[in-house]
Each structure stands twice: as C-alpha cells, then as structure tokens.
Design a protein around this nucleic acid. Structure first.
Lengths: 263, 263
DNA sequence: GCAACTGTATCGGCACGCAATACAAAATGG
DNA sequence: CCATTTTGTATTGCGTGCCGATACAGTTGC
C-alpha cells in the first residue's frame, strides 16, 4: 500500500482552466490500458493515482454515464459500450479518414492484400482503419491497436518526412525492444531505412512486427507537409518475393497516398 | 443569446456520488454525436447544456488530455486520437468479443459474405466488429456505427429472446422511421418477424437497411439467457435467392452463435 | 475464523470549479 | 468598407460541490 504519493500530481504550474475532476475521470478511463482483466476500485485508484474515495465517485459517475460497467459477477469494473459512440464520432469527423476511405478501398481492390491506415502519434502508430484481405487476421488487430513507429514500414515512411533532428529525437526516446528476431533495433540501421524511404517515397519492412509478414508503407502529410499518417499494405512472405511485392505495390500505394492528400 | 437555461439540469434527485464536472466532460464529448463538422465553443456549450465558460474549461481540459483538438484553422474543435485508446481497451476487454473473435473469423471463411457482430443497446444495435468480404463496404460502416433494433435481422433475433412485454415496450418507444421503402414499420409486422425468429432461431431481413441487401441475424445471449448481441451475415440480393441464402447461412450462423455462447 | 479484500454509504471543511466579464482577432454582412 | 457578430482566450471573487477520511456489510482465501 505504501506506494502512492500522497498528492495526485498535476502539471507543475497551476493551470487555472484545467478541471481537475475531468482529468481524474479520463485518467480512470485510461487506467484499463495495461490490464487484461476487470479492475477493482483499489486498482483503479492506484493506476489513476487517486484515493479510493475519489475512484469510487469517479467510477460511479462514469458508470451512470455508460462508459464503465461492473462485471456480471459484480466484482470489478470494465469499459462499457458508450465508448463506441465516441469512437464513431472520432472516425467519422476525422477529415483525413473521410478523404482516405474511398482511396483505401480502391487500393485494396487493386492489391488484394491487407490495407491499413494508421495515424502517427509520436512513438506509436495507431490503427484507425483496416481492410483485410483473406483468411488471416487476428482479432488482436483492432481499431486503436498500436505498433511502434521505429519498426514499421509506415513509421519509417513517416520519419522520412521529418527533419533529421526530429528523427534522432524520436529514436533517442524510443523503447527499442524487438518484436521479432528480425526487428531492427540499431538506430543507424533504422536511419538507413529512413534514408531509403526518402529516396523511394516508400518503406519496405520485412518481418519487423510479425514473422512471415512483409509490409510496405507510404506516409501521408498534412497541408503543411508534416506527416500525420501512413498507409500500410501487408502481405505474406510465403506468397511474395520482396522485390516483386515492392514493384507491384509501391506505385499503387504511392498513388493512393497522393489521392488522399489532394482530395 | 437568450437561449441557455440558467441551470445545467442534472438528474432531479441529488446524487451525492455523482461528480458533476465529469458528467459535463462526457456530455461535451457526446456533443459531437449529431454534427458532421467541427463545433465552436458556443455550439458545444449549447449542445451540452452548459455555459460558454464551462465549455471553455471543459474543452481546455479535454484538449490537454488528448481527447479533443482544435482544427487546423484554429477555429472549432474535434474529437482527437486518444479516443482510440479507449476504443481499443473496450474491445480488447469485452469478454464477449474476446470469445467471439475466432468463431466469427471461421464463419466468414465459410460463408464468404460480410459478417458483423453488433451489441444490443436498447433501441440500437452497435457495430463492434466487422469482417467484410469483398469489394462493397462503405466507410460509413464503422466501429461504433448503429442501426435501429426494430428493422434489422439482428434486432429481430434479439427481440425473439426477450419476453413479449419487453418487445412491446421496445416497439412502443421506437422511432419507427423507415430507412428504405421496404423497411417494416408496422409493429405487428415486426412482431410477426420476431415470432418467426423464435421458431427458427434466426431472422431474415430483406432490404430493411439498404436496398439490395439481405441479412440473416442470430442472437447471442449471456449466461442468464438475456440477449446481448447478434451476429449478422449480409449478402447481396443480386447474388442470392432469399431462401437459398437462409438455407446456406442459417445453420452456420447458428452454430457460430452456439460456439460463442459456450466458449 | 481471522485477515484482507470486495463494493457501498455518510459527512464536515475548504479547495476548486463556477459564471460573469473583458479582450483581440477574424469572419460576416449590409 | 466599416459595423456587428462570433471566434478563441484570459482573469477574478464567490460559494458550491468535490474532497478524503472513515465506517460497514458481504466475499474470498489463507
């Protein structure tokens, strides 16, 4: 128990516009992010860095609003359905996703492989849309799922659009843990991929996330030229020779990216 | 100006555990649900039923937390990326979805048509997972999208598992607006479909949501026998004779539902 | 059968959110 | 083109509503 620091720790300078209670509310929602089972009040309190009393009130409120629910056994709490309303509004209102949708569909029609759109968020790429192709696909690959920027084709393509110092900063901060035996973790090797992507306009990743998978990524910049997202096309090494995959997919994916930018 | 009612209006009986500020925060998030463009502070305030001052503080807070952002032009606000983190946690932690995933994949493999899982939420069925089949698919069909319970195959299948009085109540409260010329809006006609679903264990919907679409729904009950979700299989009337669709799909979908229940 | 949990309920004090107000800049429109 | 409205942002004093401590009943599990 002796763990928690007695005071919840707000941003150092007192921000008079910040509503503490809402901050706590969202921290409670985020508390579930690591866990793979329901959380008790005490666990929520610990993860959100608040007292058990506070957690009780916050959970009570969020439950009444439909964002949390208690488990069937009445023991522990879980996120609840109303979250999906927010999801829908986010996806629907996102200008990038609106423009991207038809182009991504056409891309999938043409390449007949899995096509994703993921959003650049610093160290993470966050999946926002996926159009899968065939049998394969885990449920683990859900909307909101994230993969590290440093070891994905889309991440490399995004970094290729950043100035060098930002790439360095990103790599310096990154948690470079490999996801497969073949994941590149050497910053220089990664920088090499980024350079390559600068030249070709796309990045090719071999078994960086999953063994047997080849992925080609193309970045999507905003109006100011800053990368904000990436298209992924993923195929199986059992079916594709890497160079063949690149030759076939790269032009289509690049064209799709351009269509999205100018849409 | 004279618009806003002076007091924000919480549930009439004073709930001492309810944290007003969090309630407001979530109402602000929900304010985007109708709109198809960014909202200004004043619009948010109006939709959430709070003053502009309150909206300012709430928006400021949610923005700092990553759940809202201002548009590129600095004019108006939108939901932001962090919402997808909540989405992911919800989908990941939902026990039903966890169990359903492998079964749904197998179902799609077998029927080669679009397969959805939607969650029963009163008047709405909320899409939580979709495994699409081929070309067709609108982006409008996103996670979190909802369709009315009263006019979908899944909704009928769900109602078939409810006692009559609850079906009546649901239909009495429903907003029976047709989505296509063929949408059933007569409560008795709907009850007839529900009866049919009680006998056969599934429901068949012809062009209820979209012209040219045929959909077969099977309900999924929880441990207590209450329906909580439905499987949808949707095909095109251009390719299927309705009875043929039923004969082919119904056994597979029912089997899938049973697999999910007992998993 | 004690000990350590679970979720729930109550209460007085004072922090903290409350609404009103003010302001510059940009959009609107007559 | 200037007058008017609406945008987002900033500040302040008042008082309400959140704050954390504490208590309690029901399960789980050494």
């Amino acid at each position: 128990m002796s763990s928690a620091n007695p005071r919840p720790e707000l941003p150092p300078d007192h921000d008079p516009l910040f509503v503490q209670a809402i901050g706590r509310g969202m921290q409670v929602m985020q508390a579930f992010s690591g866990s793979d089972r329901p959380l008790s009040l005490a666990e929520i309190a610990a993860r959100a860095g608040i007292t058990r009393s506070a957690a009780q009130r916050v959970v009570h409120t969020l439950r009444r609003m439909g964002y949390l629910r208690s488990t069937a056994e009445g023991r522990g709490f879980l996120p609840d359905l109303k979250i999906l309303d927010l999801t829908y509004d986010y996806l629907r209102l996102n200008p990038l996703l609106r423009r991207a949708s038809p182009a991504l569909l056409e891309l999938r029609r043409n390449v007949r492989e899995r096509v994703d759109l993921s959003l650049f968020d610093g160290q993470r790429m966050v999946y926002a849309a996926r159009m899968q192709s065939k049998r394969e696909m885990y449920f683990a690959t859900l909307v909101g799922n994230t993969v590290p920027t440093f070891c994905t084709s889309g991440g490399w393509a995004v970094m290729a659009m950043l100035p060098d110092d930002q790439v360095d900063h990103l790599l310096a901060q990154a948690d470079l843990r490999p996801l497969t035996p073949r994941t590149l973790t050497d910053p220089d090797a990664i920088r090499q991929q980024v350079r390559l992507a600068r030249e070709t306009g796309h990045a090719l990743a071999l078994e960086q996330i999953l063994m047997g998978e080849i992925a080609l990524g193309v970045a999507i910049p905003d109006a100011e030229g800053r990368p904000v997202a990436a298209i992924h096309v993923a195929g199986s090494l059992a079916e594709w020779e890497p160079e063949e995959f690149r030759r076939r997919v790269a032009p289509l994916a690049s064209e799709t990216a351009r269509a999205i930018i100018s849409a």
